[in-house]
């Protein structure tokens, strides 16, 4: 099992889980704010749409569907 934080809340997921899946499993639906402020979430699941972007370990605009969760990661959504 892997433990990471999403918006400062600690959660545990199965090994191999993508950050996008971890976020949704944690009950968070708004991954990012669109340029006009709308909440957006993952759409394509395959790194194409860029709607699932979040900040991972301080680096913004990362596609969460393409990143596998690792221990200690800090994920921040809705920025």
């Amino acid at each position: 099992m892997i433990t990471l934080t999403i918006n400062k809340i600690s959660i545990t997921v199965d090994e191999g889980t993508t950050i996008a899946a971890a976020i949704l499993n944690a009950g968070v639906t708004a991954f990012r704010k669109s340029v006009t402020g709308e909440p957006r979430g993952a759409v394509c699941g395959m790194g194409i749409c860029f709607e699932c972007r979040v900040t991972i370990d301080g680096i913004a605009h990362q596609r969460s569907c393409n990143v596998i969760a690792a221990d200690g990661m800090e994920v921040v959504t809705d920025e």
Binding site: T17, T18, A20, A21, L24, N25, G45, M46
Partner: peptide, 15 residues
């Protein structure tokens, strides 16, 4: 979401 997109996310561990 996309249809295949949701499938892909579930493969990535979405419950």
């Amino acid at each position: 979401l996309g249809a295949a997109g949701l499938q892909a996310l579930v493969k990535g561990g979405l419950d």
